[in-house]
């Protein structure tokens, strides 16, 4: 051990060069790309919706498109269904993924490996294929109905074309990422801490509540904010599986832009969606910052 310590007299990360701009140069390209392709369009979108010509052609400050959005019941319904879908997905993801992750963390052997492969599988299925498979299986007269019918049970109330359609599809689609993040968080939970708790007589629930949960709360936050960001602005699954109205913000924006030929309101919807995503994003940034501060 002492040899190793002496050998490490030169630190692994050499900070003497930090005054040189190499690091900055390395991040310059992604930062420039992000500024050009993401930050600038955001600024331009916000600018174009609040600073635009009025009826006489005088360019001036106007919030009328936002006033329209927040006074239009149809738009508000769409925003509400988006928030509802996102919340439902977040709850279901936690309920489904946490037990899977805990199982994978605390068991070994061949079966957990299969379970893990199965949990990661949705990652490799494109969502458009998932949508059509969903219709064949859970759709009306689909496979589930056929199986139920075979054993003499009534048909299910199909979630296809109802708000539950996108929820089921999006949860399935987001399981792999959530399980992976939770699993990496569970790596922080030391076996001996759990064994110690067991030794003093803690039951399973107490172990989960007092030992595991505090150590992975950060990962839970990260996993949920990742999933929520993707779900809030998702397009394919709500478009194919959801009802015609109310529709989620993704299909709503796309339709306003392409089919209604109304770029101003489409951009307004995008800015509002972005505002919500920023709020979720801040959770993530905060938890990362807190982690780095440790």
């Amino acid at each position: 051990m002492t040899d190793a310590v002496e050998g490490a007299a030169r630190p692994l990360i050499d900070n003497t060069d930090s005054k040189r701009p190499h690091g900055l140069l390395l991040v310059a390209i992604p930062v420039l790309l992000m500024t050009w392709l993401i930050i600038w369009p955001i600024i331009s979108a916000i600018g174009r919706t609040i600073w635009r010509p009025d009826a006489e052609g005088n360019v001036g400050f106007s919030l009328s498109s936002y006033v329209f959005f927040f006074s239009d019941q149809y738009s508000l319904n769409n925003l509400w269904i988006t928030l509802w879908t996102t919340l439902m997905c977040a709850i279901l993801l936690l309920v489904i993924c946490l037990p899977i992750a805990i199982y994978l963390r605390f068991s070994s052997g061949r079966i957990p490996a299969y379970v893990q492969a199965l949990a990661i599988f949705p990652m490799f299925v494109p969502s458009i294929i998932l949508a059509y498979a969903f219709i064949r299986v859970l759709g009306p007269n689909g496979m589930v109905d056929i199986l139920l019918n075979a054993v003499g049970l009534p048909k299910i109330r199909t979630p296809y074309l109802t708000p539950w359609g996108p929820v089921i599809g999006l949860v399935w689609d987001n399981i792999p990422l959530t399980v992976l993040i939770l699993l990496s968080g569970l790596g922080n939970v030391a076996n001996h801490a759990i064994e110690a708790a067991r030794d003093v007589g803690a039951n399973r629930l107490q172990v989960f509540w007092h030992i595991i949960l505090p150590r992975i709360s950060n990962s839970v936050l990260v996993a949920i904010s990742f999933a929520v960001l993707g779900i809030f602005s998702s397009f394919t699954l709500p478009y194919l599986l959801g009802p015609a109205a109310p529709e989620m913000m993704g299909p709503f924006m796309n339709r306003t832009f392409r089919e209604v030929n109304d770029p101003l309101n489409a951009i307004t919807q995008a800015v509002i969606t972005f505002g919500f995503c920023i709020a979720f994003g801040l959770f993530y940034v905060r938890s990362v910052a807190r982690n780095q501060g440790k």
Binding site: Y74, P243, A244, A245, E247, R255, E259, V260, N261, D262
Partner: peptide, 18 residues
């Protein structure tokens, strides 16, 4: 086309208690 696409979604699609 734009009028039909917008009007149908606002008037026909939602007015149903599913």
């Amino acid at each position: 086309e734009a009028a039909i696409n917008d009007g149908w979604y606002r008037n026909v699609a939602p007015n149903v208690d599913r």
